[in-house]
């Protein structure tokens, strides 16, 4: 006997009614839930975007971009005839090393964790549901970065190889590069600018 069927004649009338009631109420609630989740998501996307844009993306981008810009300018300066300091070759090598290490830093290496997103994803895993959605464009980008890593590993023996199987750079590495950049500026006789 299938107790799940609301049309089971042999079931006690009260059980049948309960099952039917549950089925009907679930149906209406689920339709509402589905439409609510879509509306709720759309209502909050822009708010989330603006928050992430101004709160994390812009300041972090400014920080990394500023270091890269300074490294590029110093590298070009050391290469130019304008630079007449002693030990120029060593400074050139240092400028190249800093610029190259900074170029290797990715957004995902330095972005702080989104703890709320992680907590919510864990709730979904506990409920055995699908995980938190990821934007298609970001998904594609992560895929490309994965491919880049694989290529870097394949060419790890070549002199121009990137990271090989080394771990990805962290914010601590960026801070260390910033210090090296300041030291380079000082050795070139330039005042250290704002960070």
């Amino acid at each position: 006997m299938d107790l799940d069927s609301p049309w089971d004649d042999t079931a006690a009338p009260s059980i049948s009614r309960d099952i039917e009631w549950t089925k009907i109420s679930n149906e209406f609630t689920n339709v509402g839930y589905r439409e609510g989740i879509t509306a709720g998501k759309e209502s909050a996307l822009q708010e989330g975007f603006d928050d992430g844009f101004a709160g994390v993306g812009v300041p972090l981008g400014r920080e990394i971009g500023a270091l890269r810009g300074r490294a590029a300018a110093l590298l070009a300066f050391v290469q130019s005839p304008l630079c007449v300091v002693e030990g120029r070759e060593a400074l050139l090598a240092e400028a190249r090393a800093i610029a190259s290490a900074l170029a290797n830093v990715r957004f995902t290496d330095v972005v702080p964790r989104d703890l709320e997103a992680e907590a919510h994803a864990r709730e979904h895993l506990a409920d055995d549901e699908h995980g938190v959605d990821e934007n298609e464009e970001l998904k594609e980008k992560r895929k490309m970065e994965g491919l880049e890593d694989m290529l870097a590993q394949l060419t790890a023996g070549a002199p121009s190889a990137g990271m090989g199987d080394k771990p990805r750079p962290t914010m601590e590495d960026v801070r260390a590069l910033e210090d090296r950049l300041k030291a380079l500026s000082a050795r070139l006789g330039l005042p250290v600018e704002r960070s």
């Binding site: 996307l45 989330g48 975007f49 989104d114 919510h120 938190v132 959605d133």
Partner: peptide, 10 residues
């Protein structure tokens, strides 16, 4: 979900 996805993109 909207806040999380929007934040990631932003």
């Amino acid at each position: 979900h909207g806040l999380i996805e929007g934040r990631a993109l932003g």
